[in-house]
């Protein structure tokens, strides 16, 4: 198990390093950053001055080394737009996005796993049809539209929850539902498919032959084997939710890190973009690592891989 853990950790570190290289290179992929920063109508001399001021004249490797060294201590430089340290900006926004992401994934798991199990236990039953209906709707409906519909019904007409903002837990209810529902179809379908397969397995028959109670057969013997692929998918979905909640954050004016990333890109605010990409990537790497560990705990055969 320790060997497995160290191996995965090493892999994660390698991925994180590669990601940092890519997120740094992005600065140069978009063209000469000095020209972009100097703005329209700048003379060659202005551009040159900006180049020297920001250190773009130094060799790329040296710049990367400096950036990485600073980033490791939490210093991502100052935002070009806000002129304040990027780390402060990010520290302010990340918790909002994390809260939303964790709430949404919890909502998705609580909705989709029980439904997926029920659908698999009674295939083609009413509950299976209902689950299929929910997942088809979830896949077909754009989340921004769903968000707006919920706002109209629950915030505007019924007045149960606030329309937008991020001041209290009540502000997070609608965004959680919208973002969580987005992840539901995939998790539910995979749970259902996994359960259908596992329930046909010989060891389920063995468990029944031992006289294990039906509920325990389902949740102890079947679910543990069926959720193994679901764990990986859920980690990816959560990573996606954290990075890709821009639309939801804009609709509900949640003003989280997704929204910040979106705005920073359009403002050419490279240090902020770099920092956000790096942080999101690291979270993603961490989630994948956690998923691997969780799977290793669920399935002893994985531990020896």
């Amino acid at each position: 198990m320790l060997r497995f853990f160290l191996k995965r950790l090493g892999l994660a570190a390698l991925v994180a390093f590669t990601v940092s290289l890519i997120s740094f290179s992005l600065l140069f992929l978009a063209g000469d950053p000095a020209i972009a920063l100097a703005g329209e109508g700048a003379t060659d001399a202005d551009i040159e001055a900006v180049r020297i001021q920001y250190g773009f004249d130094r060799p790329v490797l040296e710049q990367y080394g400096g950036w990485l060294g600073n980033a490791l201590t939490g210093d991502f430089g100052d935002s070009y737009y806000f002129k304040t340290p990027v780390i402060h900006l990010v520290a302010e926004k990340i918790p909002i996005t994390m809260t939303l992401g964790l709430c949404a994934i919890s909502f998705a798991i609580l909705l989709s796993i029980p439904l997926g199990v029920l659908a698999a236990v009674k295939p083609n039953s009413l509950i299976d049809r209902f689950a299929l209906f929910l997942s088809v709707i979830g896949q077909a409906m754009p989340s921004f539209w769903f968000g707006l519909i919920l706002i109209v019904i629950f915030a505007v007409n019924l007045g149960w929850v606030p329309v937008s903002g991020s001041d209290s837990w009540r502000h997070f209810i609608l965004p959680t539902v919208v973002l969580g529902y987005y992840a539901t179809p995939a998790i539910m379908r995979l749970t259902r498919a996994g359960m259908l397969e596992v329930l046909r397995a010989d060891y389920i028959r063995t468990a029944r032959a031992k006289g294990i109670r039906p509920g325990k057969v389902l949740f102890k013997h079947a679910l543990r084997n069926a959720v193994i692929p679901v764990v990986g998918l859920t980690a990816v979905q959560l990573g996606f939710m954290l990075g890709g909640s821009v639309i939801i954050e804009s609709i509900f004016a949640l003003n989280g890190a997704g929204f910040l990333a979106f705005e920073s890109i359009s403002r050419n605010d490279f240090p902020t973009v770099q920092a956000l990409i790096l942080i999101f990537s690291l979270i993603y790497v961490l989630l994948t690592l956690l998923a691997d560990l969780l799977n290793a705990w669920l399935d002893p055969r994985i531990r020896e891989a």
Binding site: D202, T206, A209, H221, R224, D299
Partner: peptide
């Protein structure tokens, strides 16, 4: 009951 397939009749988890 004892089954025919010992390789798959035990729960791997």
């Amino acid at each position: 009951m004892i089954f025919q397939e010992p390789m798959t009749s035990l729960n791997p988890a």
